Every structure is written in C-alpha cells, then in structure tokens.
Amino acid sequence: MDLRIFTEPQQGATYDDLLRLAVATEDAGYDAFFRSDHYLVMGESTGPEAGLPGPTDAWTTLAGLARDTTRLRLGTLVTSATFRHPGVLAIQVAQVDQMSGGRVELGLGAGWYEAEHTAYGIPFPPTRERFDRFEEKLAVITGLWSTPVGETFDHHGEHFQLRDSPALPKPAQRRVPIIIGGMGKRRTPELAARYATEFNVPFQPLDGVRTQFGRVRDACTAEGRDPEELVYSAALVLCCGRDERELGRRAGAIGREPDELRRNGLAGTPAEVVEKIGAYAEAGVQRVYLQVLDIADLDHVELVAAEVAPQLR
C-alpha cells in the first residue's frame, strides 16, 4: 500500500507552512506530497478573516516545492478545470515537471465549489458545460504533450480552439500521470478510462469505493483498455494517536470528534488505522492519500510513517 500526504492549504497556510510539512513528509519516507487547488476556505468559518493569510496558488506552490525538495512526487488533488486555460495549464505543469526533474502528477477535475469562483470572479458554468470543458481540456493538454517536437498541434472544439501551436514546452516525463476522480456515474468513469493513469475516490465508505471502481473498470473494458493499467486510490481524513488522549487532541485541533472520524476517516491508534487501510485494500485500493488538516502537526505524519507504513509493506 502506497501512502501519500494530502493537504488543504485554502484553510490557512503560507508557502513556508507547506514547505515545512513537505520536508517532514520527505524525511519521513513518504513518496508524495499533494495539495488541493482551491481559493476559498471551506467549512463553518467563512468570514473575511477565515483562512488567513489567504489562499496560495497550487501550481505556484508546486513550482517552489519542485526546487525545495529532492525526491517527493508532487501534485494536485485536484486542479479545477475552471481555473486555467488548457494551453496555459499544459505549459505550467510541463515547466514544474522540468523544475522537479520529472516528479509531477496532475490531478484534474471539472470544478465544483461555486463560492470560490464568485469570490474571485472566475466563471462557473452549469454542470454539463463544466464537464464538456473538462473533457476538452484533457484532450488539449494530452494532445499538446504528445505532439512530437518540431510538429504543431491544432484543436477545434466547442470551447477551445488552438491553431499551429508549437506544443512546447514538453514535460520531463514521457507521460505525466493524470489523476481523475469522483463519484460521477457515467462521464467520470468514461473520462478516466480514456485519459487517466490513476482513479481516485475521495472520502467514501467501502461500498462507495467498490461501486465506483466497478464503474471505472467497466468503462475501461468498453473503451478497449485493460482496467489493470490504472492505479486505484482513495483519499481519507487522517487522525492517528498513540492513545485516546492524543487522538482526542488531534481530533479537537481540526474541529472533529474521534468517534465520527473513526466512522468516516482513518482514525484511531496505529493498529486501528492499519486495520482500516487493510479493509480499503480488500476493496481494491492500491494507494491512500492521507488528508492532513493540521499542517503544523509534523509529529502526526512522522507517527504514521513510523508505526503504520511499515505494517503495510
């Protein structure tokens, strides 16, 4: 089982906050550090001072981490397709991949959080149009990256038109991994079957994971693709403590209750967390993104690396 650290910086974090956690993640032996791509705090505290000092841009952050780390794979879970033109995003991701020496992964989704679009003047089309744009973005980004050097790329779609693009720069990797996820019943699995190297189910119980993985496997078969080519992953809130007192302290720090987290996340002692990850593995999960909500608690990621990860090898 592959464990990755996953953060939500829109809740309040500077670049230096994220760098400290990323370095701790690397030092603890994890293989990857991911962040969300959001511009507005979520949850009960949504006033003008919520989420101070304010949002950090996902790809600006990853560019910095590309130079300030040496081994970690870096990516988004997930970048909103509403935020950036596909041609610009293809350039950004390719450049960060070069800056990191080929350590970048692109999680991409249709976008869903309307309030952040309103707050920053970003258009937020209806659901169907967002998925149409998402699908076109996947076609444009992968088309630009796969165009041989010296040739040009054209795209004549409903929402995006590119003509005589030099399709540069190229990523350092031959193929940047693309992560698609969510619980959509039809288009999400279809797009994953066509474009993804990994499919992610976020914050779902075991039954939901099994059901959605089944849809993706069926979509791969319909597309003529081997379902085993994909990595199947899940994202879950992490709250691990050596004992009940430490668990309660960590749950309180993120405004949650231990019992609720035990039901809905990866919570409990290291032994409990190992057991629950084992249940997800039986449901087909090969990789888990550990959502760390208290990014100042470096001991948390070190505890899991020392007492959970070794039991999963």
Rank of each mutant, 00 (worst) to 15 (best):
A296V: 03
T82A: 07
V176A: 07
Y195P: 09
L21Y: 05
A283H: 07
A172T: 11
G107F: 06
S233M: 07
G29R: 04
R130C: 05
G75R: 02
E228I: 13
L72P: 01
G87A: 13
A63Y: 00
A222S: 07
L312T: 14
Q291T: 15
Y232M: 08
D27E: 14
E135G: 12
R103D: 03
R262D: 03
P202G: 07
D243R: 11
L162I: 10
L312P: 13
L72F: 12
A283D: 05
T69A: 04
D97M: 04
A279M: 09
G54R: 06
E229I: 13
Q286H: 05
R256E: 10
D226N: 15
A253W: 10
G109I: 13
Y232W: 12
V304F: 11
R163T: 14
L89Y: 00
L236D: 00
I122M: 05
L106G: 01
S165T: 12
Y39A: 02
Q161R: 15
I179Q: 04
G255A: 14
A309L: 15
T56Q: 15
L77E: 10
T142M: 12
G268E: 08
R186P: 00
E190S: 15
V201C: 09
A13N: 06
E44F: 12
A235K: 00
R103P: 11
E129P: 06
Q11M: 06
D132R: 06
A28G: 02
E302N: 04
F83C: 04
H38G: 04
D57P: 11
D17Q: 08
A271V: 03
V308Y: 11
T76C: 08
R175D: 14
A81T: 11
L247A: 05
Y280T: 08
K185A: 15
G241P: 01
G121P: 02
E190L: 09
T269M: 15
A305E: 08
E223Y: 08
R174W: 04
G284Y: 06
F131G: 01
H300I: 11
R225C: 12
Y195T: 08
V149C: 01
G107K: 05
L191S: 13
E190C: 02
I254N: 03
G101Q: 02
F124R: 00
T70V: 10
T46L: 05
T197L: 09
V78G: 01
T25L: 07
A172N: 08
V292I: 13
Y39L: 14
R71V: 09
I295H: 14
G248V: 08
R313F: 03
R67A: 12
D37Q: 06
V140L: 04
L298P: 06
L238K: 03
R287K: 13
L40V: 08
Y113K: 09
L52W: 15
L65R: 04
V96D: 05
R256Q: 07
G12S: 13
G255K: 10
D243H: 15
I180T: 11
P53T: 02
T14K: 07
A58H: 03
C220R: 11
T56K: 11
P148V: 06
R174A: 13
N200D: 11
V292L: 06
A32Q: 02
E282G: 11
L206K: 15
G214W: 10
G265F: 00
G181V: 09
R250Q: 03
L236V: 04
T76Y: 02
K276N: 01
G268M: 10
R67V: 15
E151A: 12
E307I: 02
F134V: 12
F213G: 01
L19R: 06
S80T: 12
Q286A: 07
E229G: 09
G64T: 06
R103E: 13
K276Y: 07
